[in-house]
């Protein structure tokens, strides 16, 4: 960003179409594979299982045969909060996480984090995960580790980065080719790219040419826990009223956001 050049601020975000999401879990594996997320023999203890992208199964609470379920992929919401004061960012005592005003991405720096977990207490989405133990790759499996993401050590918090390294690599390519800007398809998160149902759309929410700009304006679009003021950058789309209502808390008599 050289001085003087008119620099348009980007705001990367997602629109996830819950009508299309089949709950297959491809996004989760794409994410784990891309981001060197560790795994262990028993991952059934879900509160001790690092899944930057986690697919929740929502139920409508009705009895057979009116029962309905919906899958909801939950990456980090990259909350903007009030001018960058995401719930987790402002609480970190050591600036191990920050809100990038140029991209809207909330970072997590593993080597700065000293593991106080205040950010985890702050995040209502449970998008932050702690390395309760040393990650172990069985012999030979360390070979598939991605050099563009640093593996974490025990005792630090990690979370979805919107595959920021893919942005860095796209920029590198653009610079080498004498460009300043990158196209929409040059920077896609691993989950968005992998989704076999094309349910995840990723792009710059500020850019009118990007699909997310249009998709987020659909009336059936909502964000999780908007009422808390977290101002997340992940939008969801569902044609089912009960799903939209499940996105936030409402008092009994209240109607859900249109």
């Amino acid at each position: 960003m050289s001085k003087g050049s008119k620099h348009k601020v980007k705001k990367f975000g997602m629109v996830i179409d819950l009508d299309k999401c089949t709950g297959c879990g491809a996004c989760m594996v794409a994410c784990m594979s891309e981001n060197n997320v560790p795994f262990k023999e028993n991952e059934s203890k879900k509160l001790d299982s690092i899944t930057w992208m986690r697919v929740y199964k929502l139920e409508n609470g009705k009895s057979f045969p009116e029962a309905d379920i919906c899958f909801l992929p939950r990456p980090c919401m990259h909350c903007e909060g009030d001018r960058g004061h995401a719930p987790c960012v402002s609480v970190c005592p050591a600036i191990a996480t920050d809100y990038d005003h140029n991209t809207g991405i909330v970072s997590q720096i593993y080597t700065r984090c000293f593991g106080c977990r205040y950010c985890m207490a702050a995040c209502p989405y449970h998008a932050r995960y702690f390395n309760w133990r040393d990650p172990v790759w069985p012999e030979g499996m360390e070979k598939f580790l991605n050099p563009n993401v640093s593996p974490r050590m025990r005792g630090v918090v990690e979370k979805c980065s919107f595959c920021h390294h893919r942005y860095q690599l796209a920029l590198d390519k653009a610079y080498a080719e004498g460009r300043d800007k990158i196209e929409e398809d040059e920077y896609q998160t691993a989950c968005a790219h992998a989704c076999p149902a094309n349910a995840i759309t990723f792009g710059d929410l500020n850019n009118k040419k990007h699909s997310v700009y249009r998709l987020k304006k659909n009336p059936n679009t909502f964000r999780l826990l908007e009422r808390l003021g977290t101002n997340p950058k992940v939008y969801y789309h569902s044609s089912r009223e009960w799903v939209r209502r499940a996105g936030d808390n409402y008092l009994k008599h209240e109607a859900a956001k249109a």
Partner: peptide, 17 residues
Amino acid sequence: SGICILGLSSPQLLYSP
């Protein structure tokens, strides 16, 4: 052209113990 959760696992399966 496409990929599913199993195809995405192929690096792990390649280096599997």
